[in-house]
């Protein structure tokens, strides 16, 4: 009986082709490898995503929490046709991007989570995701939304996305935007970079282990100070601080 119920709960993935790994030189001169992660690597990824759930700035908390859930969903076979790409520098995790296929012709971008900033790693990883949907999977368009103003500005305006407001996005049910093949082709020369095949030693290093990010985003230094700021960009009103206060009240 239990086995039969699992059959109902577990979606059947379609046999989509894998993402061919690529590499590129970053502004720092370091080499970034972008490759598809395997389901076995999810526990390692979760370990590196978890601390970001408590970074109450730039929507890192919300995005990390959702990525955590999506990774778990994939790991426990509760999400259909999901894939995860990782960007690594010398093995170190620099970004995670994920998405899924809605149909054979339509993809859905889920998240872009950058662990190192200032080198456009998020932009490279996002472009790789779009490349996967349009070029490798041969889809016509990818549905995109953004949680953060930074993401909105970058994707919606840089790529000039089309409105698909009749289609609610799986992330919060908000109206979708779409990156079509035509728009992608127009942005391709400017935004999609990388070389293939990845030299064997680089690829081996990337597969060997997903190392922790060396300089990940951290929570605000002084939570109390942050509440006194007039604009709380994240809008989360410092959940952590409230917890801390509640705890001390319980102790008393």
């Amino acid at each position: 009986m239990a086995v039969d119920l699992e059959k109902i709960l577990r979606p059947v993935d379609h046999p989509y082709p894998p993402y061919p790994a690529k590499y590129m030189t970053l502004a720092s001169g370091e080499t970034l490898v972008i490759r598809q992660a395997t389901r076995d690597e999810v526990p390692t990824l979760l370990k590196h995503v978890a601390p970001l759930v408590f970074v109450e700035r730039d929507y890192y908390d919300l995005v990390a929490a959702r990525v955590y859930a999506e990774l778990l969903g994939w790991y426990h076979y509760r999400m259909q046709d999901e894939y995860v790409l990782v960007a690594q520098i010398d093995g170190e995790l620099a970004a995670i991007v994920n998405g899924r296929s809605v149909t054979g012709k339509q993809g859905m971008s889920l998240h872009t989570l950058a662990m190192r900033r200032g080198l456009r790693i998020g932009a490279h990883a996002f472009a790789a995701k779009m490349e996967y949907h349009i070029d490798i999977l041969g889809q016509d368009e990818v549905l995109v939304v953004a949680e953060s103003p930074i993401g909105f500005r970058r994707w919606m305006i840089e790529y000039q996305l089309e409105e698909r407001f009749d289609t609610p996005h799986e992330l919060g049910g908000v109206p979708s935007y779409a990156l079509t093949k035509e728009l992608f082709d127009r942005a391709r020369s400017k935004l999609v970079v990388g070389r293939r095949p990845v030299p064997e030693d680089l690829l081996a290093k990337a597969h060997e282990a997903i190392l922790p990010p060396s300089d990940p985003p951290t929570p605000p230094a002084d939570l109390l100070a942050a509440t006194r700021a007039k604009y709380d960009l994240t809008g989360t009103a410092l959940i952590l601080q409230r917890w801390a206060q509640d705890r001390s009240a319980d102790d008393a």
Partner: peptide, 10 residues
């Protein structure tokens, strides 16, 4: 100089 430079440095 790298092939990716113009994207790194838009």
């Amino acid at each position: 100089d790298s092939p990716e430079a113009m994207t790194n440095n838009p």
